[in-house]
Structure formats: structure tokens, C-alpha cells
């Protein structure tokens, strides 16, 4: 990857920007389009400088219409381009739902493989940034429930770069969910590191008592909870899923079988959420290894609350530790 940016300290936002830039440098078919992605560089500056370097045709400010943006990207992909679409916020992506569900997810299938759509749809998601309503949704379950889409969500600076590169390179459509409250977190970034494939979970912390299974914005919360759990005598592992579809049953089940206790943690509402799917899958596959039911710690089943109240909604360290305490340790 000769064009790649050298190793440096980077925010997640800068890592995503570097991934877009490197992908566009290496492959002329990669085009970025969305609202305010040009001169402004996106409201989160993820596309900063791309129009200046590649021109407005390669990083295109579109009219303000999400179905039109994604529908146009579909046609561009049909012609052989590799579009990367930016949706400005999670809840602003909903007008594009029909294009996503009826066309992006199905085009390969309904044309017997003749028209694959290598489109990456970047969506800043989740809360915790003090946003007013419609700026903090966790919409991953909608996408994960739609066959034909990959659903990827990085939680670290390195994964933000590597998984975005992998998503753009994928010949399948990828919904790339960016945990917006982690945009400004810093870490070392080595763009030359091998790109992680889509679909592999990773153990962020080893432990001997139980595992917290999580992804995206909840990873730092889980790591904090694991640290705090030491005082209670629990040695918690933390598993970062990184990809919701395809789901890494193999890694998840290996860890759960070895520990026998698991809690799934995510911001999105619990009912019908990805946590329910994960708990069911783990129970179906690891029942005889489980010492306790798989528990879920999630957002409440309410519309996303106003910013002054969101901390009551978001899973925090205490709520996670309460769940860990209910893992039937007395047995």
C-alpha cells in the first residue's frame, strides 16, 4: 500500500478520512457522494479535502435527498463504479430505506449474480454526543435484518481504517456504521497493517469469569466495566464483534463455551434487537456450556431521549455490572 499514510496518532475521524483518500488514490472507480461532503468535508469532516484532491466529480455534493443519493449510487455501481455514500446522520438515512432494502440488498440476487452492487453506505450512528432528536439512533437491527447487506461497525481507530478499506473493496454492499461518539478518540494508526476481513470478531480483553459481547460505541463502555469489575472479583473478557453481518458465530461460541457466562451490550433498544439474535444464537449453540442465561444490557424500548436525559438510556458501567451480578454465580 505505497500510497498509504504513514503510522501516526489519529482520531477515528481522521482514520476514516485516510481510508477514503487511500481507496480513492488506488482505485479510480471509487466515488464519494452525499450531502455536504464537498467544500465542507461532511458535517463530521470525514470527507475533508477529498474534493480538493480528487475533484467534485469524485467527491460529489448531491442535492439533499437520501433516496436519490442511494438510487444514483446504484446506477453508478451498475455502470462499474464503486460508490461510497455518506448519510449525514443515522435517522436521516431512512428515506433511502426502500432503495436499500428493495434494490441494494437484492440486486445481486435478482439478477443471478449479473449485477453486484459494490456500494459502501457510511452512516454515523448512535448517541452520547448531546444531539437533539433524530441525531442519535442506533439503526443496526434494521440493516442486519435485511439479507444481502453486510453490516460493519468499527470501534477502534485501526478498525475504522481497515474495515472501511475492506468494505470499499467488497463486491457486496456494506452498511458501514460509524460510532459517532468515538469519532474524536485517538489511537495509533498504521495504514500499512493488514486489512482485517469483514466478518471476524476480536477479543479486546481476555478474562476468566464471563464475556461482554459488544460492538461499536459500547466497546469503550464495556472495557471500562471490565476494569471496574476487578474490584468485584470478576475477570471479564470483552469481545468486539466488528461485523454484525456476516456474524462470527465461530469466535463468539468459542469464547462463550470457554467461559460459560455472557452478557450482550448495545445502545439500540433491546426488543427485536441484535442482542436478542446474539443471545438466541449463543443459547442454541452453547447451551450445555452455559452456567447462566445470556443476558442483554441495551437501551430502553423508547424513542431516543432528549440529550439531557440520554445518559439514563445508554448502557453504562453500573448497568453492565448489575447484569454480570445476575449471572448465577452462586451455582
Amino acid at each position: 500500500m505505497s500510497t498509504a499514510t504513514p503510522v501516526r496518532t489519529s482520531t477515528m475521524a481522521q482514520a476514516l478520512n485516510a481510508a477514503l483518500r487511500d481507496a480513492m488514490r488506488e482505485d479510480r472507480s471509487v466515488h464519494v457522494l452525499g450531502e455536504d461532503v464537498g467544500a465542507l468535508g461532511g458535517v463530521f469532516r470525514i470527507t475533508d479535502g477529498l474534493t480538493a484532491e480528487f475533484g467534485r466529480d469524485r467527491c460529489l455534493d448531491t442535492p439533499l435527498a437520501e433516496a436519490g443519493i442511494l438510487g444514483t449510487a446504484i446506477g453508478m455501481a451498475m455502470y462499474g463504479l464503486r460508490p461510497v455514500v455518506e448519510m449525514q446522520f443515522d435517522a436521516f438515512a431512512y428515506p433511502a430505506m426502500e432503495q436499500l432494502v428493495s434494490h441494494v440488498a437484492k440486486m445481486r440476487n435478482r439478477t443471478a449474480g449479473k449485477l453486484p452492487l459494490p456500494i459502501t453506505i457510511r452512516i454515523p450512528y448512535g448517541g452520547g454526543i448531546g444531539g437533539v432528536e433524530h441525531h442519535s439512533d442506533s439503526s443496526e437491527a434494521y440493516y442486519a435484518q435485511t439479507p444481502g447487506l453486510h453490516v460493519v461497525t468499527p470501534a477502534t481507530v485501526g478498525d475504522a481504517y481497515g474495515l472501511l478499506r475492506a468494505s470499499i473493496a467488497s463486491d457486496d454492499p456494506v452498511v458501514f456504521l460509524e460510532p459517532k461518539r468515538l469519532y474524536w478518540g485517538k489511537d495509533s494508526l498504521d495504514p500499512a497493517a493488514p486489512v482485517e476481513p469483514i466478518g471476524r470478531a476480536v477479543l479486546r480483553r481476555t478474562g476468566s469469569s464471563a464475556v461482554l459481547i459488544t460492538y461499536g460505541p459500547s466497546l469503550p463502555v464495556c472495557l471500562e466495566a471490565a476494569e471496574a469489575a476487578k474490584a468485584e472479583g470478576w475477570d471479564l473478557a470483552v469481545l468486539d464483534l466488528r461485523t454484525l453481518v456476516p456474524f462470527d458465530d465461530e469466535t463468539v461460541c468459542r469464547v462463550v463455551r470457554s467461559l460459560g457466562r455472557a452478557v450482550v451490550v448495545h445502545e439500540a433498544s433491546g426488543f427485536g434487537g441484535t442482542g436478542a439474535e446474539i443471545a438466541a444464537r449463543v443459547t442454541e449453540r452453547c447451551f450445555h456450556h452455559l452456567a447462566a442465561p445470556v443476558l442483554r444490557v441495551t437501551g430502553f424500548d423508547i424513542p431516543y431521549p432528549p440529550p439531557m436525559l440520554e445518559h439514563h438510556h445508554l448502557p453504562g458501567v453500573d448497568r453492565i455490572l448489575d447484569a454480570v451480578a445476575r449471572l448465577q454465580w452462586e451455582d
Binding site: 442511494l70 453508478m76 451498475m78 432503495q99 428493495s102 434494490h103 435478482r110 449479473k114
Partner: peptide, 29 residues
């Protein structure tokens, strides 16, 4: 049929949803 070989998109059932595809393809061309 093969849409790429025939330059004919699949018959589209959800109304008007193929119209932006035509725009995107024409734009790319």
C-alpha cells in the same frame, strides 16, 4: 436475462425506484 449484456435493467416493481438508477448510470457514463 443478463442486464449487463442486454443493457436492460431488471423489470422494476416498486414504482419509480428505477428512475434514480437510470440517472446514476447515465451520470457515470
Amino acid at each position: 436475462y443478463d442486464p449487463r449484456a442486454t443493457r436492460t435493467a431488471p423489470l422494476c416493481t416498486p414504482l419509480a425506484t428505477q428512475a434514480p438508477h437510470a440517472v446514476g448510470l447515465a451520470h457515470a457514463a
